Amino acid sequence: MTTPYRCPNCKTNRSRFNLIKQIPLAVKMDPQTGNIMEEYAQDELSPFHTPYNGPDVKVQCAACGLIEDEKTFVKFGEMK
């Protein structure tokens, strides 16, 4: 994270952001109650459970509140 950011929504914020670390928790839930029946470690998922493959970090603009992938803010930060 050594590249400059710029918000693609408000287009003026280049300095105030919230970095949101995404930590997936693989679970099996009861379909009737919504209670968690089982938690899985990432290396021990059941055959029908697809592992999380989304971004590790999301970014929120602290000026307007937009939440997007980090690469979106980086791309706008590269533009002059």
Rank of each mutant, 00 (worst) to 15 (best):
Q42P: 13
E70W: 00
K75Q: 13
V74R: 08
Y40S: 11
G77L: 05
I20M: 06
V27D: 15
Q22I: 15
F48Q: 11
T50A: 07
V57Y: 07
M79K: 11
E38C: 04
Y40A: 09
K28P: 00
E70G: 00
V74P: 00
K80L: 11
P4S: 13
R14V: 14
D69L: 05
F17E: 01
K75D: 15
T3H: 09
Q42T: 13
M1D: 13
Q60D: 00
F73N: 09
E68N: 04
D43Y: 04
A26R: 02
K80W: 00
G54H: 07
C7R: 00
F76R: 05
A63K: 01
F17Q: 01
C61E: 06
N18Y: 08
P8M: 09
H49I: 05
C10E: 11
A62H: 02
G77Y: 10
K58C: 04
V27A: 13
P51V: 05
T50G: 03
E68K: 05
K21R: 15
P47Q: 07
P31L: 09
F48L: 06
G65F: 02
Q32E: 15
K75L: 08
V57C: 01
T3V: 09
G54F: 06
V74I: 14
R6G: 09
G65D: 09
T72V: 12
M37N: 10
I67C: 06
P8N: 13
G65H: 06
S15Y: 01
N18V: 15
K80H: 11
K21F: 12
L45C: 06
R6P: 06
I67K: 03
P47G: 05
R14W: 00
A41Q: 14
